[in-house]
Every structure is written in structure tokens, then in C-alpha cells.
């Protein structure tokens, strides 16, 4: 039995310890905002927070998250930070097919929490583990830049 916190609630599971956190979230908890792209750490579609740190859930066997605090995109939907990112992504035209977006939002939030006033280069570094097949990234960089300005003081 593995116990952990998921989006603020205490949870437990009997799934094998070698199950990927990504599969546990999607299949057992039906949190399908977290996506699978590559399954090997390259694309960031599966990004979640583990103890407030951005991590790729496809690379985490659940045996290692005993006692940890997990947050998925669903867990931040009601926050002010998410609302600002949501608006900024829409305004900047940063969303096309949307597949990469939950992971991008998690990476954006992680970046801004650490560095509330990032330069363009720092923004690109912050999302360097997240692939987007549609936008060409410029609109995403603009979106994060806008979110930094709009949310000044809350990150």
C-alpha cells in the first residue's frame, strides 16, 4: 500500500510500486489532464509537481512517491496563478491543438514561482523540457511574458 497526497487529498493505492505515476493518475484517478507524449522524459506533456517541484510523471515509479505531495493540472485549476496563465495563453494565441498545454502550464507556473520576472531566454530555458508541435513556441513565450506582468506580485 502506497500513501501520498494528491491535489491536497490523502490517497492510497495498491497498484504495483513499479507502476508509472502517469498511469496511476490517468487510469486509476482519471486525471487525464496529464498527457503521455514520449514516455521517456523528452516532451514534458506528463509534467506534474512532486513536493512542489516540476517532474515528468512518465519517469516516476509510484514506489518512490510514498509520502509525497503530488499536484496535477486539475489541482491548480482554481488558483489565481492558473487563471492568469489561462488568460495569457489565450490572449497570446499560445494554444493550438492543446496537447502540450497542461504540461506547458505546469512548467510555466514552476518557472514563474522560481523567477517571477524571467527574461525571454530564461523563459525558453524554463520550457526547454516541453515540446510543442503546433505553435513554434513564440506565442508561448509571449504568453508567459504576459503572465509574469499581469501576475506581478502573486508568483
Amino acid at each position: 500500500m502506497i500513501k501520498f497526497t494528491l491535489n491536497g487529498k490523502t490517497e492510497e493505492t495498491n497498484a504495483p510500486a513499479t507502476t508509472r505515476l502517469l498511469d496511476l493518475l490517468r487510469d486509476d484517478f482519471e486525471l487525464i489532464g496529464t498527457k503521455e507524449g514520449c514516455g521517456e522524459g523528452e516532451c514534458g506533456a506528463c509534467s506534474v509537481f512532486v513536493n512542489n517541484l516540476l517532474q515528468n510523471s512518465c519517469l516516476i515509479p509510484i514506489g518512490s512517491i510514498a509520502g509525497a505531495e503530488i499536484q496535477t493540472i486539475e489541482g491548480i485549476l482554481e488558483t489565481k496563478k492558473f487563471k492568469i496563465l489561462d488568460e495569457s495563453y489565450s490572449d497570446a494565441g499560445g494554444v493550438q491543438c492543446g496537447y502540450c498545454i497542461p504540461g506547458m502550464i505546469m512548467a510555466s507556473a514552476a518557472l514563474l514561482s522560481k523567477n517571477p520576472h524571467p527574461s525571454k531566454a530564461e523563459i525558453r530555458e524554463g520550457i526547454s523540457g516541453n515540446l510543442c508541435r503546433c505553435t513554434g513556441y513564440n506565442m508561448i513565450v509571449d504568453a508567459i511574458n504576459q503572465a509574469a506582468k499581469k501576475g506581478d506580485g502573486i508568483w
Binding site: 497498484a15 504495483p16 513499479t18 507502476t19 508509472r20 498511469d23 487510469d27 503521455e36 514516455g39 521517456e40 522524459g41 512518465c58 519517469l59 516516476i60 515509479p61 518512490s64
Partner: peptide, 16 residues
């Protein structure tokens, strides 16, 4: 696990 998980990748829904 960033090397091990890639080396022993098992695919969707299948424990390692």
C-alpha cells in the same frame, strides 16, 4: 530513475 526508466521503458499502463 531518469536513466533506468528510459532503459526499461515498458509502455502505457504496464508496470516496469
Amino acid at each position: 530513475g531518469t536513466d533506468i526508466m528510459v532503459l526499461h521503458k515498458s509502455g502505457r499502463g504496464v508496470p516496469l
